[in-house]
Write a protein that binds this DNA or RNA. Structure first.
Lengths: 194, 194
DNA sequence: TGCGAGGTAGACAGAGTGGTCTACTTTTTT
DNA sequence: AAAAAAGTAGACCACTCTGTCTACCTCGCA
């Protein structure tokens, strides 16, 4: 069956996300999961193939989460509000589907690899585009600048929450800023009218 | 003399920034710089000490650059405008002091290490706080939310420009958005009045 | 002329890496 | 009950990693 395969991907994702991909060796994944090395190489051609499977799984999980977060928003303001309060909940460990927060797995991963044409980096780019499109689909207005601005602040919030650490004010301050700001200032005033 | 030491730090910083710290071994730094291994370990106790020296040098360079960028701004709006147009120039390779753009060295580094109490991660946090204070010093208003918002968008812009790659619209769109937005909407309206 | 500081070259140790392979056991299917 | 499929344990290979060590060289200075 593919139970073992799934166990490998789950374990790999957990360890990669927590520690970074280059810091985690195949043997550690095998020790933690309890799976034999032979089995791993029956399912995956190489470590890179396992990394790609972990990225894919994380993307699926994140996309599904984001979809449910944004579903039901009645206005663009509500989209922004829902998004940033969900992000804040994630930063504080309140989104069990996403696990303990340690930044964006794809940003982290792209910091570890330099070959821009590698499958791994291409997948990271793909994730960001796909995420952007999910948000776009939930917005009423087709304003590209609004979409850009939302994505920009989303990335900034994730990175800041990660790098600022737990005992830093920026974390709560910034995300509460996001939630506070939106309902007061209309998005059209806030962004477009070039 | 410390010529060799400086050469080692320069080489290490270049390679670390371009490829990630865990992807670059001591031997590669030695090959590229042409320095002997014995000499490296005469100046640095370990690879970690060399990493810290590279982080320190990058921080000094970046802080000096940011200082000159923000100097002379007459208003908070101008601070924001100067900051984001300088960032955009950096993304496009136009800031020779900072070298070729490959994201934020400190964000990238913090993705590779997981021990929050390590000297390396502590230095990355320190860099972000110091950067924040440089910006704060150049702002007229003491509005913490404005400062948070600027830092948030700054991180978002850096990360997006890095991850989106060269052929992605988000890069220019987002940064030009930053520059376009600011002079039209006053910052006080844009941020505070809780 | 000699000495010492600073540097070079590179062998080496010990641990760890991704990946292959043989031999064996367990589980599932027919 | 027998055969086929799936998995285990771990030795092993070739390589890389950080860090140590010996032996030698090349200057400036006295």
């Amino acid at each position: 069956m593919s139970q073992k395969r799934q166990l490998l991907v789950d374990t790999a994702l957990t360890l990669f996300y927590r520690n970074g991909i280059n810091s985690i060796g195949i043997n550690e994944i095998l020790n933690v999961s309890g799976v034999a090395k032979r089995t791993l190489y029956a399912y995956f051609q190489s470590k890179e193939a396992l990394v790609l499977a972990a990225l894919q799984q994380r993307h699926d999980t994140f996309a599904a989460w984001l979809e449910t977060v944004l579903t039901g928003a009645k206005s663009d303001e509500e989209v922004v509000l829902k998004l940033f309060s969900a992000l804040e909940s994630w930063f504080n460990g309140g989104e069990s589907q996403l696990g303990d927060f340690r930044g964006c797995f794809f940003i982290n991963t792209s910091a570890e690899f330099s070959d821009v044409n590698s499958d791994i980096l291409r997948f990271c780019h793909h994730h960001k585009e796909a995420t952007r499109e999910i948000i776009a689909r939930h917005l009423k207005s087709a304003d590209g600048l609004l979409l850009d601005a939302i994505c920009l602040m989303k990335e900034g919030a994730i990175v800041s929450a990660h790098l600022a650490g737990k005992n830093n004010l920026l974390r709560k301050g910034a995300s509460t800023y996001c939630t506070l700001l939106q309902p007061k200032v209309p998005s059209k005033r806030w962004v477009s009218n070039t």
